[in-house]
Amino acid sequence: MGKLVLTGGISSAEGTAGGGITPWAMIGTQATEKELGFAANLSYGHTDDYRIETASVMAGWHERVEFSLAHQTLDTGITGRTLVGPQGLDLKQTIVGAKVRLFGDAILDADSLMPAVSVGVQHKRLDAGELSPTLRSLDASNTGTDVYVSATKLFLKPGLLVNATLRATKANQNGFLGFGGNANDDYELMSEFSVAKLIRSDLAVGMEYRFMPNNLRLDTPNGNGLAADSWKDLFIAWAPSKNLSLTAAYVDFGRIVPATTQGRDQTGFYVSAQLTF
């Protein structure tokens, strides 16, 4: 019969099951124990100066293991034109992910305080094109691997989901500006949080907050021209059928290369559609 709608989350921007910008402990797709499930997702985000497109696929097995593959393309807008010329610049990133649920079950343990807990890994490879020499000069690598632990608790009666993720990462702006750098080249632990409220069985609203590391340093008159801020969003997710979910969100990614965007916070919208079986 599959899961309750929306309890497996959606495909995040990195391809794994969760919210839009952070993973949850749930295993994605509609598959339950002794089943194999698949999902495909397309998403688009637009901020003041950037646009991002993501296509991803996911497989979930036995409600225990999840594999994901995502490909992202970032149109760098004014930043690309400033750095490489009027032709602009697209940054492309491929993310291969795996997640294992260690213990706990969001539905079966809904009447206790036991959360579902999963551990995951995401290997990221960036194709920075003409930006590659600049990233190398800043000691940033084009590959990196994130490791995370997520704990997710679903309170079924009030329809409330709470998630906390702790991620070890070197990724700059989720990897779009490489990994590590001249300000820091060590792994850092970054926290991520999600809260979602089920308004009715097919409709949920929520918010997410994700801390980002500051590994790159570029001194400019107004401070660090490569400063990174926390990511956050407010979202609404609707499942018109068991196999389809649609998500829309207001996003705030903070400063992304403020040296070229006059220090503007990158706010805008994000939309996503997912088919799952």
Rank of each mutant, 00 (worst) to 15 (best):
P158M: 00
V162Y: 02
V162C: 01
A164M: 14
A164E: 12
A164K: 05
R167T: 15
A168M: 10
A168P: 11
K170C: 08
K170Q: 10
N172G: 03
Q173H: 14
Q173F: 13
G175A: 07
L177T: 02
G180K: 02
G180P: 04
N182H: 13
A183I: 06
D185R: 09
D186G: 13
D186T: 09
Y187K: 04
Y187H: 06
M190S: 09
E192W: 01
E192H: 06
F193L: 05
V195P: 00
V195I: 09
K197N: 07
R200K: 13
R200F: 11
R200H: 13
S201M: 11
D202M: 04
D202R: 06
D202I: 06
D202Y: 01
L203Y: 03
A204Y: 00
G206C: 01
M207D: 00
M207Y: 01
Y209I: 00
Y209Q: 01
M212E: 15
P213T: 10
N214R: 12
L218F: 12
D219V: 15
T220K: 08
N222K: 13
A227W: 13
A228K: 07
A228C: 09
A228V: 08
A228G: 11
S230H: 15
S230N: 15
W231D: 12
W231R: 09
I236T: 10
W238F: 09
A239Y: 00
P240S: 10
P240T: 08
S241P: 04
